[in-house]
Write a protein that binds this DNA or RNA. Structure first.
Ligand SMILES: NC(=O)c1ccc[n+]([C@@H]2O[C@H](COP(=O)([O-])OP(=O)(O)OC[C@H]3O[C@@H](n4cnc5c(N)ncnc54)[C@H](O)[C@@H]3O)[C@@H](O)[C@H]2O)c1
Ligand SMILES: NC(=O)c1ccc[n+]([C@@H]2O[C@H](COP(=O)([O-])OP(=O)(O)OC[C@H]3O[C@@H](n4cnc5c(N)ncnc54)[C@H](O)[C@@H]3O)[C@@H](O)[C@H]2O)c1
Lengths: 225, 225
DNA sequence: AAGAGTTTGTGAACGCGTTAACAAAATCGT
DNA sequence: ACGATTTTGTTAACGCGTTCACAAACTCTT
């Protein structure tokens, strides 16, 4: 007997590998593109090409959700789309609060692309009294002191940190205290959170630094060639 | 005999694992923080804690660069800082061009944090005639038609795509044609590039979708509990 | 109805990354 | 000078993710 994945007590199990979860939104986007083109059915090869992944990887990923294809035929675009959407929670909208509406926070607030992916920017919060009360992308900026009330009232579970790094830990603490259990952190700082709270970090400087590293290698290689 | 890593013909070898390269900037940041606090020497435990990683992982990562520590003592902060900076190409500044100065492109242009990490936003480019000629964060926006001239003149090797998804492939093609060999893509679209060109993708929607997936799991678990 | 052709779902091999564990090498105290 | 202590650098085990390869399951043609 081999234990498959996170055997939950209630048997509902499911426990999709992290790497797969990260790709499901990509598949969803590819399926949406196919649906818009009027494609009703697609093979794993078709979909994999649209998503930019290996077909075997795609099939393995989908196999974690269930068996939604038909051998010899492929996948029904609409049906698979719904199954993936359901799996990653995109049958509902998720309200998020953005803390820190400076350059980046404002850009995120204005972004129209979130709404089609089940994300709704529900509230904006800032510590700067000059910003509080102003309206950005149709949303009035609230004070940091009102964070708990906002999170509770709107049942927000996801927060975005777009403040300077020095404020990141304090903001994270406040978000957690208010009831937020998932945080997307853009500040270049480590934030500590209790168990049960997820934190993802997006570090744009590092993305560029990685590219710079590879550029340096390319330059060095051609110099010795 | 075991072959270690990418044995280059000229023997200069070096070929640091991707996962390690992605963490070196984190170590560098942690070392900078220690240096600012006046710390002259640190152990792998100290540094690992500051960087938020496992000490064994840190030591293994550093071992790819060379042997820069002293057993029984630890690492000289200043010395290690220089070695990592040199390895990832941070002894020089890297000029980047941002294509598409809308909400996100403008936020990136204004970001002060890049300069301390060896990244300099050297040029801004947009296709919209209304934006061309305007000044954003002290840089005059150029026309897309001038991209090749700008890239050549300033010897830019890194480009950032911050245009809508539909334009991403065309922009990538133009960047590559102009001589750019590393691209950071913020648009929710696959871009195809020839061999020798690196592309990294940052997809903020997906980051939030991943958090939403975990939120859904948490909600489901507590419902059945 | 049967064989040829397609395509999925998955077992198994492989490779990369992480982590634990320890020998080697340094310092410190006596 | 030497044993106790500290901490690195590295080897080995482990786990996760990727990929191959193929049987199972379906359609289509004759
Ligand atoms: N702008 C970018 O393109 C970019 C790129 C990479 C990383 N970042 C990071 O993202 C974060 C935000 O960047 P930015 O350029 O928007 O900075 P910014 O200075 O323009 O905005 C920061 C905002 O946070 C607010 N703030 C400060 N302390 C706060 C607190 N305790 N609670 C609530 N709000 C607070 C400020 O009032 C301000 O409005 C920073 O950590 C930055 O390092 C930004
Ligand atoms: N704003 C965000 O917070 C956010 C979040 C996630 C993803 N993104 C992605 O980042 C990209 C930019 O987002 P944004 O909000 O800044 O969009 P935006 O519409 O505000 O800006 C896009 C800019 O690109 C320019 N542009 C269009 N076609 C071009 C071309 N062919 N060449 C050069 N410039 C061109 C436009 O003139 C405009 O200035 C989009 O792909 C978006 O999906 C943005």
């Amino acid at each position: 007997m081999t234990i498959l994945r996170t055997p939950l007590a209630d048997g509902s199990a499911r426990g999709i590998p992290d790497a797969t979860v990260a790709r499901l939104p990509v598949y969803l986007r590819a399926l949406n593109a196919l649906a818009e083109q009027g494609v009703a059915t697609c093979s794993s090869n078709d979909l994999a090409e649209n998503a930019g992944v290996n077909p075997a990887k795609l099939r393995k990923d989908l196999s974690y959700l269930g068996s939604y294809g038909t051998r010899g035929v492929g996948y029904d675009v609409e049906y698979l789309r719904y199954q993936i959407a359901r799996e990653i929670g995109q049958t509902q909208d998720w309200d998020v609060v953005i803390v820190g509406v400076g350059n980046l926070g404002s850009a995120l607030s204005a972004y129209q692309g979130f709404s089609t992916r089940g994300i709704r920017v529900a509230a904006l919060v800032d510590a700067d009294p000059k910003r509080v009360g102003t309206t950005i992308s149709g949303i009035t900026v609230s004070s940091l002191d009102d964070l708990t009330a906002i999170v509770e009232e709107r049942a927000i579970s996801i927060g975005i940190i777009a403040t300077p790094g020095e404020a990141a830990q304090e903001v994270a603490d406040r978000l957690v205290a208010a009831g937020v259990t998932s945080i997307l952190n853009f500040a270049p700082a480590l934030v500590q959170v209790p168990d049960g709270v997820d934190v993802r970090k997006v570090d744009l400087s590092i993305e560029l630094q990685i590219l710079a590293y590879h550029e340096q290698r390319k330059a060095g290689k051609e110099a010795t060639a």
